[in-house]
């Protein structure tokens, strides 16, 4: 007994080492299954405060580039609007019809404004921290977009900050389709280049060309149909040869995210509560 105690005391650092490493691995592998773990993320109050302060400074650095791309998109959208308005006018000769058309696109969806305070690009699983939380009405599983396209999905929420799974994360699956052709697949990142992601499971008979636009399919409750994701960059065969694998140039530049919007459907809370009760 005495020898045993001596042995343990003499090697206490080795036992402590094993104990701490086991603790680390438990934390590492259980982190994502545990909703309460938001306090161990950058969305907790203190980290959120630190990142918010720094992003108030660094937010100015990319402002010019962000402004340029928004202006460009605005001009494009305005030209499209003028063309469409003219077409609707020609077809129906009625302006009331047009107003009711625009109202139906985002019908039933709400937007909340937020700032990205922390962001990563080069890990296998990337997350964003935003300065909105449950006190602003955020819930896990809400979609996050910016002016250019889809950014990610809310994962965990603290009272004033939230953790968002970015598209650049092996855990993010977004159902997407080719605009105008309705063939759909799911988008998942491969951990390499932050400018590109991969659309998988696109059927063999689908028609797909370089430059085609990829948008959300609207099959899940998270994103409404038709939000920009990116453009087709390269079409390859999947490993099993049963479907296409499409390299998608992402519309959002994850290197300089600043303003984002959280998008959610009215009645989403009710649906989630119902689903929870069923489980």
């Amino acid at each position: 007994m005495r020898n045993l105690l001596d042995f343990i005391l003499k090697n206490s650092h080795s036992f402590l080492f094993i104990l701490l490493e086991v603790l680390c691995l438990v934390l590492l592998f259980r982190f994502n299954n545990y909703q309460g773990s938001v306090y161990f993320t950058s969305a907790n109050r203190f980290c959120g405060f630190v990142y918010e302060t720094t992003s108030q400074v660094t937010g100015y650095f990319h402002l010019k580039a962000i402004n340029d791309s928004l202006t460009e998109r605005n001009i494009k959208a305005e030209q499209e609007l003028v063309a469409l308005r003219r077409q609707v006018m020609e077809l129906s000769g009625d302006t009331v019809k047009f107003d009711s058309l625009t109202a139906t696109v985002l019908q039933g969806f709400n937007l909340i404004k937020a700032h990205v305070v922390n962001n990563s690009l080069n890990r296998a699983d990337n997350y964003l921290t935003i300065d909105c939380g449950s006190s602003d009405g955020l819930l896990p599983e809400m979609g996050v977009v910016n002016g250019l396209g889809v950014v990610g999905i809310v994962d965990k929420t603290a009272s004033h900050h939230a953790l968002v799974i970015s598209l650049l994360n092996s855990k993010s699956n977004v159902s997407c389709k080719i605009k105008g052709r309705e063939y759909f697949g799911y988008l998942r990142w491969d951990g390499k280049d932050s400018r590109f992601s991969w659309l998988r499971d696109l059927p063999r008979h689908a028609v797909c060309h370089k430059g085609d636009t990829i948008v959300t399919s609207g099959y899940s409750a998270i994103f409404p149909e038709g939000i920009m994701v990116g453009t087709v960059d390269k079409v390859l065969d999947s490993n099993d040869g049963l479907s296409y694998l499409v390299r998608v140039k992402l519309a959002v530049d994850f290197g300089r995210l600043n303003d984002v919007r959280i998008i959610f459907r009215k009645g989403m809370e009710e649906q989630q509560q119902l689903e929870k009760e069923i489980q």
Partner: peptide, 20 residues
């Protein structure tokens, strides 16, 4: 470091090993 960079357990495991 883990808490700040959303990698719970990863940096802690590596740094504990280094300390050992």
């Amino acid at each position: 470091i883990d808490i700040f960079s959303n990698t719970l357990g990863m940096h802690a495991a590596a740094t504990t090993l280094l300390a050992y």
